[in-house]
Computed example of a mutant assay.
Amino acid sequence: MAPVTWRMSVATTLRHAGCVFAEDEAQLLIEAATSPDHLDYMVDQRVRGRPLEHILGWVDFCGSRMVVEPGVFVPRRRTEFLVRQAAKFAPPGGVVVDLCCGSGAIGAALSDLLGSCELYAADIDPAAVGCARKNVEPRGGRVFQGDLYDALPRQLRGRVDVVLANAPYVPTGSIGMMPPEARFHEPMMALDGGTDGLDVQRRVARHAAEWLLPGGCLLIETSEDQASETARIMEAGGLGARVLVDKELDATLVLGTAPAPGGNP
């Protein structure tokens, strides 16, 4: 088949499988294919519900191609809001920590926006850590495996400018309503935030002030419905908190600020 015919055929197949952006996906798969058999395989995987990003091996995030491997959480476009807000508070060359880093795309994208930073990322999932190293280490950062702050070098305590956390925030009872490609192909630990969705956020906020330098910031992605409770959690951890929203991206985050010397958060 000629390339145009291929695109039409693949797009039709994807559309019938329920892919909303069938034409765009078809073009990406065709460009990535090394042979007709490879294209057939990738299309079959997509029809079976495998995330496009896992098939391609990358995601376009904040204008850069970030590696995303099978079994690793796929960064959502709404999370670009978290990165761009963080860039307003992280000084060039500052110390940045990306907790629950998944693919490492958030910290890597922030490093790109800043030009440079002292970047550290951590995740408890070994598959995520392996993937994150491919995005973070080429930018001069370091990736650690472990549970939140326990994974980080002790010498970072009290000198971090910005902590980023796209921690899991889907309530356990709502997991079944997520799209199948998330439920079946992304790690449950990256989705399930406990009964109210905020279990991991509580743990991140509880210890953030110990790691941030005075005036440093914690940014946590959350949902519109959860935002007020996320803010309360930050305040309970000694941080000033305010909710930031981007309606266009359907993105909500809470910004927490550590107290400045002799002042309030």
Rank of each mutant, 00 (worst) to 15 (best):
M1S: 13
V4D: 11
W6Q: 12
M8S: 08
A17C: 04
G18N: 02
C19G: 02
V20P: 08
V20N: 09
F21N: 12
A22H: 15
E23C: 03
E23P: 05
A26S: 13
A26H: 01
Q27M: 08
E31L: 13
A32I: 01
A32R: 08
T34C: 08
T34P: 03
T34V: 11
S35T: 07
P36I: 05
L39C: 01
D40W: 12
Y41C: 08
M42F: 03
R48Y: 00
E53L: 00
H54Q: 14
G57Q: 03
W58T: 07
W58P: 03
R65G: 02
E69L: 13
G71A: 03
F73E: 05
V74A: 08
R76W: 04
R78P: 03
R78W: 01
T79R: 03
T79W: 02
E80Q: 14
F81L: 13
V83G: 10
Q85P: 02
A86P: 09
A87P: 06
K88R: 15
P91A: 15
P91R: 15
G94K: 13
G94C: 13
V96D: 00
S103Q: 14
I106K: 00
L114D: 06
L114I: 07
S116I: 02
S116M: 02
L119E: 03
D125S: 10
A128G: 11
A132T: 12
A132P: 12
R133T: 12
R133W: 11
P138F: 06
R139V: 10
R142A: 14
V143A: 09
F144N: 00
F144Q: 01
G146I: 02
G146K: 01
G146Y: 02
G146A: 08
L148P: 02
D150R: 08
A151T: 10
A151N: 09
L152S: 09
P153E: 09
P153T: 08
R157G: 01
G158M: 10
G158E: 10
V160R: 07
V162C: 06
P171L: 12
P171Q: 12
T172H: 09
S174T: 06
S174L: 15
S174W: 14
I175K: 09
M177F: 07
M178V: 01
M178T: 00
P179M: 04
E181D: 13
H185C: 05
L191Y: 07
G193R: 11
G193D: 14
G194D: 10
G194W: 09
D196E: 15
G197Q: 11
L198I: 05
D199F: 01
V200E: 00
E210N: 07
L213I: 11
P214F: 14
C217H: 15
E221I: 01
E221A: 00
E221T: 03
E224D: 13
D225L: 13
D225N: 10
Q226G: 02
A231K: 07
E235Y: 05
A236G: 11
L239V: 07
R242D: 01
V245C: 15
D246C: 13
D246M: 07
A251K: 09
T252H: 15
V254F: 11
A258N: 01
P259N: 13
G262D: 12
G262M: 11
P265S: 10
P265V: 06
